[in-house]
Design a protein around this nucleic acid. Structure first.
Lengths: 153, 153
DNA sequence: AATTTAGTTCTGTAAATTATGAACTAATGA
DNA sequence: TCATTAGTTCATAATTTACAGAACTAAATT
């Protein structure tokens, strides 16, 4: 399997992006490779060779991605290899994780408001604003998604 | 300055949350402390003592947060100390960063679609869907924010 | 039965991160 | 003038992480 310059640099850029989302470097590169490769499904050895990472790193990365539900694999009769691919259903999950993350933040901020006893309540107004903003966004999400789905048909 | 059990554990939880957003542990704790403390403004030594971190770690954390615009300070005549507080304007920025991050992702995904030559275009449909979904969300954001502002008045 | 294949698991370690403590500075106060 | 205050800077120590390489396993193939 050969990768173009563009594919290689996109793997790196996507890799860095996913490192910032908490993935290990090699794990993030595997995701990038499965995303940009011309073939949707790649074997263990193809991944290891394309990214120039050891078998142990490859094994670790693939198992991590399998456990977290980011990839899956198929097999073919009479072929012991597994063919790994990105779980396409996971795109929407990625968005939802960001939203859940904001929800988590909002939970923390609400507890902040409960816990602290500010002598000067001026500082509370802005924080309350933000909390209500996040609540509003969260409430609007389902209808937004619904509206988008309508535009698709 | 004394902190309740609740405040202490909230500092830790918020700290972990911000570590996942790429902040150093001590930096994340300083943000947490400034957020939950009863007084909105704290001095260098109060921060250092409350969190039990060295002066150098405190200095590093405060300068980092000042440089990135997360905190600011006031001074008072005849008092050499600086009084640090969270920049309240930064709440909305936090949300915007998440949105920009999704925008960055979408840019990468569009390039993925350009670069790869999938023999089986079935895998492309889902990705295209997600790209269009992110575009839709981005376009709707300004009006959503506007709507929220109206509910506030 | 021996070899190959498709991985996994187990050390070891290089590199990066994060914090400490000690020495320093620059301004203020006694 | 000497001490104190409010920090900063630097060298270094302690962790953490991330991966390589070698040894291993379990199934299939020869």
């Amino acid at each position: 399997m050969t990768l173009s310059e563009q594919q290689l640099s996109l793997i790196e850029e996507f890799g860095v992006y996913q490192e910032n989302n908490g993935f290990q470097p090699a794990v993030a590169r595997v995701m990038g490779l499965l995303l940009v490769s011309d073939r949707a499904e790649l074997t263990f050895d193809e991944i290891s060779e394309a990214l120039n990472i050891s078998k142990s790193a490859t094994s670790n990365a693939l198992n991590m991605l399998l456990n977290t539900g980011h990839i899956e694999y198929t097999t073919f009769p009479g072929d012991r290899k597994r063919y790994f691919r990105i779980k396409s259903s996971n795109w929407r999950d990625l968005f939802e994780k960001k939203m859940e993350d904001l929800s988590h933040l909002n939970g923390l901020l609400k507890r902040v408001m409960d816990v602290r006893k500010r002598e000067n309540p001026i500082y509370d107004a802005k924080l309350n604003d933000f909390i209500s903003f996040l609540d509003y966004m969260k409430n609007r999400m389902p209808s937004l998604i619904h509206e988008w789905e309508k535009t698709r048909k």
